[in-house]
Amino acid sequence: MTDTGHDRRPRAATGRFAGRRIVVTGGSRGLGEHVVRLLLSEGARVATCARRPEPLEALRSSLDSPDTLFTQPLDVAVPELLERFVEEAASALDGLDGVVACAGGARGRGITEATAQDWSATWDMNAGHFARLVATSAPHLRAAGGGPIIVVSSVSGWKPGPQAQYGAAKAAQIHMVSCLARELAADGIRVNAVSPGSMLIPGKRWDRMRQEDPPAFDRFRAEFPGRELVRPEEVADVIAFLLSEQSRGVTGVNLPVDKGQNAPTPEGY
């Protein structure tokens, strides 16, 4: 476990999220890191987690004010570890004002090859993680007078593509948002989903394709009307909007950030 030794004295934070206390799961790399850095840059205090401690330490050491970030390594698919993280984050930040479920993933291949364990693991990383995160953080948001919850789903949640276990788990997240938005509305809690299209993240699948197989990458670009993949900072901006007061009238929605993408993978269908 890594603790920031959070300074409880008042800070002269400025920005859209000055003084706000926000949990972001999966915040050490990729989209999650963009979200964490954006929130910190606009005055928030943030708690985040990831499987490995090294990226979390690298993130903290890169900050000018590392005391504004609470980190903890854990697997979000393990309910008791995720629940303990939320409780310790709320203690370190003196409460919670917002939550972003950014962690996720997939396991297994096609339907005839994927095992029951692949289906279960994919569910736990996505829908299960989101459910436990909401259940554990909602009392803290209620105590603060309400607040936003955002889950990062995917275009794969409603546009068909391989593998089915991933699409099913992402579709479940989207449906949960519409249910939870109604269930938690009386507590002043807004619940929304952001569904990114295929993101161009350095070192990840599409970036490797761009470098290693330019013709295949160019064919994949044809799935986007503007022939440009989504960038993580574009998705982070939308997440920040849904966390902000500017979106106080928005709840129960799934907001695509996909640049009009057609098929979610080069395999199409």
Rank of each mutant, 00 (worst) to 15 (best):
V152D: 08
S153P: 14
S153V: 09
S153D: 05
S154P: 08
V155Q: 11
S156I: 00
G157K: 10
G157C: 02
K159N: 11
P160S: 10
G161K: 01
G161T: 01
A164T: 13
Y166N: 04
G167V: 05
A169P: 03
A169G: 12
A171H: 12
A172P: 05
A172G: 13
Q173F: 02
H175T: 06
E183W: 10
L184V: 06
A185I: 11
D187M: 04
D187I: 13
R190K: 08
R190F: 10
V191A: 09
S195F: 08
S198R: 05
M199F: 07
R205H: 06
M209E: 15
E212K: 11
D213T: 15
P214A: 12
P215S: 14
P215F: 13
F217Y: 15
F220Q: 12
F220G: 04
F220A: 02
E228T: 13
E233P: 00
A236S: 04
D237G: 07
V238G: 01
V238I: 05
I239F: 10
I239M: 03
S244A: 08
E245M: 00
E245W: 04
Q246H: 05
S247I: 07
R248T: 13
V250T: 13
T251W: 11
V253N: 09
V257P: 08
K259D: 01
K259E: 01
